[in-house]
Amino acid sequence: MVDNLASMSDKAITGSFPVKRGLAEMLKGGVIMDVVTSEQAKIAEDAGACAVMALERVPADIRRDGGVARMSDPEMIEAIKASVSIPVMAKARIGHFVEAQILEALGVDFIDESEVLTPADEAHHIDKWKFTAPFVCGATNLGEALRRISEGAAMIRSKGEAGTGNVVEAVRHLRSIIGDIKKIGQADSAELFDWAKRLQAPLPLVQEVAESGWLPVPMFCAGGLATPADAALAMQLGAEAVFVGSGIFKSDEPARRAAAIVEATTHFNDPQILAKVSRGLGAPMTGIGMDEINQRYAERGW
């Protein structure tokens, strides 16, 4: 992929696709935690988070409160940026390119064009090639992931169902994306045209996936993870890192749970360590079943 908008200065190029994807590469194997205050951001960093997502309300509260969910107040994002040394992400509404411009102006390290906020555009996602800051976008299936990548996303996260504490949708989306990547790997060159049509995804990206056996950008898992075992499950299924939103600060002992989830993400293939870190963490967030919710965030975006 070529980014024509890379700017030249002192022979150094900023904002190119390799530079954007580079930060996603550095976050692999880590845990990105939702935080709503500087204090929570510090707890997350202390626990070993590789980045924090600064937002005004965690998804569980957005779900409870209803109404329109928007980009967070810049003052709050700046306070969180000032309180930690790790990368800080923030969310813009789907299609709300001005919120994204503001987040970039604030020096946010990664912008999440997120279905957890109320979409601003019912037909168009943000043209992410226009930005210096990298973007992460959610996806429920391979076609959606490739459409976001064609718009310039430097990281994909499987959507899951945010704010539920229920991992079932995250598993569904991961299995769907990875399952189709495997199938495409078996397809012959003629069949790839049909795959591109069915996935509604650009043919060159479908061909790239067929050849490399993976997405052109890292894929992380989000939406409903609440325990160390959930994080390890996502990693064993093939996610390259995890986002944990409401799961940490809606639990009884956020600091301990956060540290345990960090260890579980590193040692995801070691049941002995998983058993050790899962002990005595207090109550997890209560969580809700999929038949109890009236709004599926995963259905936002297309």
Partner: peptide, 15 residues
Amino acid sequence: PGGESTTMSKLLVSS
């Protein structure tokens, strides 16, 4: 490797 040095520092101790 590259990554977050604070995260790795924690995990170097816990592991």
